[in-house]
Design a protein around this nucleic acid. Structure first.
Length: 274
DNA sequence: GCCCAGGAGTGCA
DNA sequence: TGCACTCATGGG
C-alpha cells in the first residue's frame, strides 16, 4: 500500500465524489473507498491535506487529475460575473474532474438516462456483483467493473434482471458492438468527431454522449445539459432557448476549454441549492 | 396514487 | 425538421 497527499483546497473528497460524475464509491472510516475498473483507493482528509492510499498510486494520481492546476480554473469561474458559477466555484474549489475509464463511462451513462443517481448506483453495483471479479481492499470485499467481454456474454435479460428497465437492449447491443470494434479507435478522434460517433450507439443521445466524452475521454470542452442544467440555463442565465443541444452550444461558446469544469460547478451548485 | 430522475427512440405530420 | 408519445423502475 502506497500513499500520497494533496492540498485539500483544490482536492475535496466529498465534493469530487458527490457531484454526479462517478457512481462507484462508499463511505469508509473518515473518508471513502473509490472504485474504478478493478482498482480501489482509500480517500480521506487529514487536516488541510487530502490523502490517497492505494496499490495503484499512478493510476489514481491520473484518475483524480492531479497533474492539473485548478487554481486558475476556479479563479476564472469566480470572476466570470455569473453569480451561481462564482458561488459554486468558491464553495467547491476542491471539486476535481475525474479521468475515468471510457468503457465504464459508456455503460454507466447509458443506464443514467431518465434515471436518478441513487438508483443508477444500485444498478451498477448489481452489475458488478453479477459479473465483476471479486477483490479485496483494506479488508473490504468488492467487485470489479465487468469487462466488455463478460458483459457481451450476457443476454438482454441479465440487464433487465438487475433493474435496467427498458435500457436492457441498449446495454446488450452496446456490449456486443464494443466487443466487436473495441474503443481504441474513439480515443484519437476530435471532440466533435467523438461525440457524433458516440451518437451512433443505441441509447446514447446528445447528453449522454457529452457525459461520456467529458468523464470518460477527458474532453473538457463538452457541456452536458440535463434537467438540472436546463434549470440553470433558464433561472441563472436568463436564457430563452428551448432545446438542450442549443443550450449546450450556448455554454460551450461561452466557456470554451473550461466548459466541463464549469458545468460541474453549476450542476453541483444547483443541486446543493446554492 | 402522482411526480420525478444527469433522456432517447420512434412514428407521424 | 419538429413534436408528441412511450419506454421501466423506485424514491419522495
Amino acid at each position: 500500500m502506497k500513499k500520497f497527499d494533496y492540498d485539500s483546497k483544490f482536492f475535496d473528497p466529498l465534493h469530487t465524489l458527490d457531484c454526479g460524475q462517478i457512481f462507484r464509491f462508499e463511505p469508509f472510516k473518515s473518508g471513502f473507498i473509490v472504485f474504478s475498473l478493478d482498482k480501489a483507493c482509500y480517500l480521506y482528509k487529514d487536516g488541510c491535506r487530502t490523502v490517497v492510499e492505494s496499490d495503484d498510486p499512478d493510476y489514481f494520481f491520473n484518475f483524480f487529475d492531479l497533474a492539473r492546476d485548478y487554481s486558475q480554473i476556479v479563479k476564472t469561474a469566480e470572476e466570470s460575473g455569473f453569480q451561481l458559477l462564482a458561488k459554486s466555484a468558491r464553495a467547491f474549489s476542491g471539486l476535481r474532474l475525474l479521468n475515468q475509464n471510457c468503457e465504464e463511462m459508456i455503460y454507466s451513462f447509458i443506464i443514467s438516462q431518465n434515471n436518478n443517481i441513487p438508483r443508477i448506483k444500485g444498478i451498477i453495483s448489481r452489475i458488478c456483483e453479477g459479473l465483476g471479479e471479486r477483490k479485496s481492499f483494506l479488508g473490504n470485499e468488492y467487485y470489479a467493473f465487468p469487462t466488455t467481454r463478460a458483459l457481451s456474454e450476457q443476454g438482454a435479460d441479465f440487464f433487465k434482471n438487475v433493474g435496467c428497465g427498458y435500457r436492457d437492449k441498449f446495454l446488450f447491443e452496446t456490449a456486443q458492438r464494443i466487443e466487436r470494434e473495441g474503443v481504441e479507435r474513439l480515443k484519437n478522434l476530435s471532440s466533435a468527431e467523438l461525440t457524433s460517433e458516440l451518437l451512433t450507439y443505441k441509447g446514447i443521445g446528445e447528453k449522454v454522449a457529452d457525459c461520456i466524452a467529458l468523464f470518460g475521454f477527458s474532453r473538457r470542452d463538452r457541456f452536458p445539459v440535463d434537467v438540472w442544467l436546463e434549470k440553470v440555463y433558464k433561472e441563472d442565465f436568463n436564457g430563452s432557448l428551448t432545446d438542450r443541444k442549443a443550450m449546450s452550444r450556448y455554454f460551450t461558446d461561452l466557456f470554451g476549454a473550461n466548459s466541463g469544469y464549469f458545468q460541474q460547478y453549476l450542476f453541483y451548485g444547483k443541486r446543493q441549492n446554492l
